[in-house]
């Protein structure tokens, strides 16, 4: 069972209290953008086997969206952080690098 700490209310919530929202830090492309950019934004997810940054909602708690860094190959959680972040915070990146030296970093 997955347990994520909500960065807003501090609750250590288990999975049934949360709803998953897919890949985080997507760059949005709307009207006027190229077909390739729009397709990549809509459909082409990174889907890595390993470190993944993703959106979650504390659905049966404070109701807020937040972000999490998690490994899809082991389900290990590296940390959670507020949805207002445009990229993963430095302390979480450092923690992942220490644990996964082969990880190529956030891009």
């Amino acid at each position: 069972m997955l347990i994520l700490e909500c960065p807003y209310c501090g609750v250590k919530a288990e999975e049934t209290e949360l709803s998953p929202g897919g890949e985080a830090h997507l760059k949005r492309f709307g009207p006027g953008s190229s077909d390739a950019d729009f397709e990549a934004y809509m459909f082409a997810r990174k889907n890595p086997k390993g470190v993944h940054f993703e959106r979650w909602r504390h659905a049966y708690g404070c109701g807020k969206w937040f972000l999490a860094a998690r490994c899809t190959a082991t389900l290990e959680v590296f940390g959670t952080y507020p949805a207002q972040s445009s990229e993963p915070p430095a302390d979480i990146v450092a923690k992942i690098k220490a644990k996964r030296p082969e990880w190529k970093g956030f891009s």
Partner: peptide, 10 residues
């Protein structure tokens, strides 16, 4: 609901 390669679910 979430990305997963572990061949086990919740």
């Amino acid at each position: 609901g979430f990305n997963n390669y572990t061949q086990r679910g919740s």
